[in-house]
Design a protein around this nucleic acid. Structure first.
Lengths: 217, 217
DNA sequence: CCTACCGATCGGTAGG
DNA sequence: CCTACCGATCGGTAGG
């Protein structure tokens, strides 16, 4: 939570109120989406009256926007960190690290990330600009990674990068509809998914050669 | 529309009323999902009063259920038909035909199919049994196809079939979030997606050999 | 298929 | 952070 957003000096409010509201909203949005989640539910779960939410936020949309952006930023940072840590790994391993980080952020931590996926649309109102910006920034990470992997030969250069990105992110985010912690292991899933798309038209030989070249540099 | 469901003999109702309601509901559900779409909207778009909807359906849920099931059945039949027509093709071509049929049904015909994807959850009420059955029946088509392709070597037998199915169907259905007719060609997308997952750990050589063997039998 | 109506609930505001 | 209230709208029903 940034200090600029903390209004604890402005009124009858303790430190974590705003964050508590967002935590609660994230949990409910994750389950119900935009329209199903009501301000009364959020307020009741927090332990305050509904009208009190308006001391912290100007509207329902502002609450949802904050949750969604936090969720995407969290995945974004997790993937960037994983790629930085795997900067010397093979292209394949870098892809696997990015996929694992995305899946882990999506399922392993809190509710913000899942809520972000669930709230793809903001109902009748258009998607806020800030949300589009934050999403776009994260997509750029994958744009760059896919370009890198295609150059390195770990992903077939014959595949259209946009289709590849849409396909992969769609498959990863779709996991919110079927993933169950007791049934899947996130590291296993990441390995499976990486194996699924790691070979191009030329097949595994080229990718293996690329892996070796990368490991030796 | 089955004759058993046509109640045109029961009251002041013309032939296509029920179907017109479902067509309209499908269009609105596709855009807004379960909670955003209201009975008033549907009625107004049809040109009747909201209360009149209850002459044809017992509840909002019944309308949505009919749309969702019709949508899944439509994709199901399209994919089965495509596979039947490609029964002599290579495993790769069969997969591509199934993917193309799924994408075409999803984006090329009416609103039922997209509405089915959009209405993944039925709000607070649990997903109706009929919906679960219809969805499951369609998943079984992919279960069988994936098993067939893994046996034939077109998909790596090292990949967990369930993860593969979730991954692929998630990616295909996620296309409702980004697909634009003016930007993508469905046949091109199908070819891209097929190329993406068509090679296993052994790489393209094994798959190519399998294709040749299949083509020669 | 209609008019008329229902209680419940929605997001949001007034005023403290 | 509260009590009290708002108009609008929801899915659904009565009765024809």
């Amino acid at each position: 939570m940034s200090a600029a957003l903390d209004r604890s000096a402005d009124g009858p409010i303790e430190g974590g109120s705003r964050r508590l509201i967002l935590d609660t909203a994230a949990r409910l949005l994750r389950g119900g989406g935009y329209h199903q989640t009501t301000l009364r539910e959020i307020a009741e779960a927090v332990g305050i009256r509904k009208a009190s939410l308006y001391y912290h936020f100007a509207s329902k949309e502002e609450i949802v926007e904050a949750v969604v952006n936090d969720g995407v930023r969290f995945v974004h940072e997790a993937v960037v960190a994983a790629l930085a840590q795997a900067s010397d790994a093979t292209p394949r391993k870098r892809l696997e690290a990015a996929i694992r980080a995305h899946l882990t952020a999506l399922h392993g931590h809190g509710d913000y990330t899942s809520a972000s996926i669930k709230v793809f649309t903001f109902g009748a109102t258009p998607t806020p600009d800030s949300v589009r910006r934050v999403r776009r920034a994260y997509e750029d990470v994958w744009r760059a990674l896919i370009a890198e992997l295609q150059e390195a030969g770990a992903l077939s250069p014959q595949r259209a990068p946009d289709a590849l990105r849409f396909f992969l992110l769609g498959a990863l985010n779709g996991s919110t509809d079927w993933y169950r912690p007791d049934r899947f292991d996130l590291a296993d899933l990441a390995r499976e998914f990486t194996g699924l798309i790691t070979h191009g038209e030329q097949g595994g030989a080229a990718a293996m050669a690329a892996d070796l070249a990368s490991a030796n540099r």
